[in-house]
Design a protein around this nucleic acid. Structure first.
Lengths: 235, 235
DNA sequence: ACCTGAACACCGTTCAAGT
DNA sequence: ACCTGAACACCGTTCAAGT
């Protein structure tokens, strides 16, 4: 009877409630814990109940991606294209850091969800408004790749480790085991440099935010140079 | 008895034979068809036989990644750092196009396999030999991200669609459905431009190779400019 | 000591039976 | 008409039983 009371009090299932529970589950327990069965249990319903609101697991993932993309700040108006794009990409990055599973999910899905298209559309609009030709804008969107959505596909990305959550741990380069350092001397050299370049003795690893902004600005500055030169693909 | 003869003729299992069969299976049938059970069947052995040579499925994936990385051309010597890096990255790209499952596999694994470290080590060596400081080299490696291994994380990447194999189909931008075009006008505009910019009437989509090289050169040229300026992070 | 069939603890999803 | 338990066709991996 306590169960009956609980059932009565429980908010009825809805697509929205399912998506928010799924995002919370993936954030908290890792994407590998997100199964239809686990999610149903979390919501206190039978697994099959979910299928009334989402067609299948892929559609669930698409919906979760849309929730995440919806958390990204809108474009700032009244500034140049470069700071506007820069600010929004960095906002996207903050959002993706709150949902570490999302970047892999975005990559493995086909990517045609309305929220993602809307995001891309507004970014393209900002580039066009900044004076980039359709030609340049097109290639720029390709060149930015997933970085336009705030993630970078770094090869050593701690947040990518299965099930990890919370703020990323310092990345490997600092403090390589001696046998690894001997075998890969060039890796060891820059790891050494990275761990000392703030003068501190403590190992610090890499500053993810610095690295992201370095790459972002390398791209944005290069793009601005092409725009100013009137670059065209001239195919 | 025919079975017995077959058994006798059959090459004995080895880690190497397992890895090559796994790569062939993933190439041919898609990564989603790669299960320990399927792989064992392909090799004509019982699933448990695989566990004598690989500890588990993750180690199998690591081994497969090493096979793929081993196919990348060595660095060209006797040219500047920029053409040397450029050539090798483009070689890596060709390899990854033969193994469309590999980029996602690389991203989802932790990435500390010896073959990958060896590859990164030689790339770092080439940058250092080209006169980049350890400081700049470090940030450049982060900025290149997965592009140093030849893949780009584009948001619309046909080769990323589950199970797809062979050369990538032309990417979406050409020929958007009218209702999509109406809702996302900026996306439609550059899609339109892309499908017409060679003067042909036929839709062509995006030239993946062009886009990849555009982004690669945008980065490499920006890096060369920083090197020439004696850039330092000055943290 | 080696090998392997059966079993365990999971999946996503279908479908028929129950209300 | 709606809901759902059981079932189906899979997983990766453990483990004990058989040789």
């Amino acid at each position: 009877m306590a169960e009956q009371a609980e059932t009565l009090r429980r908010t009825p299932l809805s697509r929205d409630r399912i998506l928010r529970a799924a995002v919370a589950l993936a954030d908290g327990a890792g994407i590998e814990s997100l199964s239809m069965r686990n999610l149903a249990q979390e919501l206190g319903v039978v697994p099959m109940a979910l299928y009334k609101h989402v067609a299948n697991k892929d559609e669930l993932l698409d919906g979760m991606i849309d929730v995440v993309v919806g958390e990204i700040e809108p474009l700032t108006t009244g500034v140049g294209w470069q700071p506007a794009i820069r600010r929004r990409v960095l906002s996207a990055r903050q959002v993706l850091r709150r949902h570490p599973w999302a970047s892999l999910a975005i990559e493995s899905r086909t990517m045609a969800t309305p929220a993602v298209l809307g995001y891309l559309d507004s970014m393209i609009g900002a580039l066009r408004a900044g004076g980039l030709s359709t030609d340049l804008t097109h290639h720029v969107m390709h060149a930015m790749g997933s970085r336009i959505l705030g993630f970078s596909q770094e090869l050593f990305d701690a947040s990518r480790q299965a099930g990890r959550t919370g703020p990323a741990a310092p990345t490997p380069p600092a403090s390589l085991p001696p046998e690894v350092a001997a075998r890969f001397p060039h890796v060891a050299e820059i790891a050494e440099a990275a761990s000392h370049d703030d003068g501190s003795v403590v190992r610090q690893g890499c500053d993810d935010q610095f690295e992201f902004e370095f790459a972002l600005d390398l791209l944005l500055d290069g793009i601005e140079r092409l725009r100013a030169q009137g670059w065209t693909s001239a195919r």
